[in-house]
Design a protein around this nucleic acid. Structure first.
Lengths: 207, 207
DNA sequence: GTCTATAACTCGATAGAC
DNA sequence: GTCTATCGAGTTATAGAC
């Protein structure tokens, strides 16, 4: 029997996914409309159901893709082979750059994780998402070698993550409170690439 | 003409607001249903429209109340009369305690501010919501008096806010990633009341 | 003030032609 | 694969009795 390759139009599927990404990232699952996703993709609403049988399936594709876009990158950055201080500088710079290219991702992911923890839990159990083990071990070694002061490695890790991510989640509050233009906000984020590691190293470095 | 006092049942209105608060804080505007709010309040759906003409009006009441619950408190804490280091310790403790009593508030407020900046902007223009001026001035004085190292006061302020708020927004991610029970998570939050100010003061204190 | 019933509308999903 | 047309469930909002 000669196998017949199913010729699904890759462009249409890509267009749908890109459109769904745009809408879902901004408005979340419950705030998004299939009609809007279809319009935005330049296709018909029925087509969405042809490629992804339901709204939830389409959302799941976007959600999983978002997880894959962020978590492996965090692991990669944390497991890079370099000295502790250098890594803190490197991580802040690279991680903020990643978020600059995906400004809606933090609130999208964190929000949907809170709405439906199961969705994240499911994919988390399959492959451990964040592996900060090497980074944590590196901090412990720093303490033992008396390069940095004694502290809880997890607290340090959460502090670093907090300072990198928070401004993206609080974007509108910051912009309104400080009367920032978009350009000023961008500069503010940009400057944090250096401010955050400085702030951290000042705190933990043994003198 | 004898004035007739309108006897609106204060209990019903309070019950509605409390129920709406519970649902809206957890699920947001688009994720919440008037039916669920009515059920949760133990009343009829039509009653919601009797007290608050529309879903959006009801949401607005909850949103404005949330703003009033958080922002004046932040201002109050920041404007307390005390030395800089003491204030950083005091703020972290009191602000985290406030969030512990309103665990859904951070994601609720930040998320809805991103969904509809106008709603926040409107109420912000009426009365300036956060007044970190005194705190900022205090930081500048600390730099001049060479008590702390030179730094951008706003960056410091955002760092402090980030570290206090972020764990509440990322609650489920943290719990799943670290396999925390509810109790372990609560202890983690509790310990940050001391960890955060220590971390900050270590960083900025001049030696 | 409170309720039941229902109108009016939105939205996800499907049937069926091409 | 793509479209139009439409169904049917779910949701906000209202009319009207008590």
């Amino acid at each position: 029997m000669i196998s017949k390759i199913k010729s699904i139009d890759i462009n249409t599927e890509q267009k749908i996914l890109e459109s769904a990404r745009n809408i879902f990232h901004k408005k979340g699952l419950s705030g998004s409309r299939m009609q809007e996703i279809a319009d935005n993709a330049g296709i018909n609403k029925a087509m969405l159901h042809y490629y992804y049988s339901s709204k939830d399936k389409l959302f799941d594709a976007v959600f999983q893709e978002a997880i894959k876009r962020i978590f492996p990158e965090i692991s990669k950055l944390l497991n890079e082979e370099m000295p502790l201080f250098e890594k803190i500088i490197y991580f802040s710079d690279k991680y903020i750059s990643l978020l600059q290219q995906n400004v809606f991702l933090p609130s999208f992911l964190l929000n949907e994780m809170n709405q439906n923890p199961q969705r994240f839990k499911k994919s988390f159990l399959k492959n451990k998402k964040i592996k900060p083990d090497i980074f944590i071990a590196q901090i412990k070694k720093g303490i033992n070698d008396k390069i940095i002061i004694p502290l809880d490695p997890m607290q340090l890790f959460i502090n670093m993550m907090s300072m990198c991510i928070f401004p993206f989640i609080a974007k509108n509050m910051i912009m309104i409170t400080y009367r920032f233009s978009q350009k000023q906000f961008d500069q503010f984020i940009e400057s944090r690439k250096k401010e955050i590691p400085e702030f951290i190293i000042n705190s933990i470095k043994k003198k």
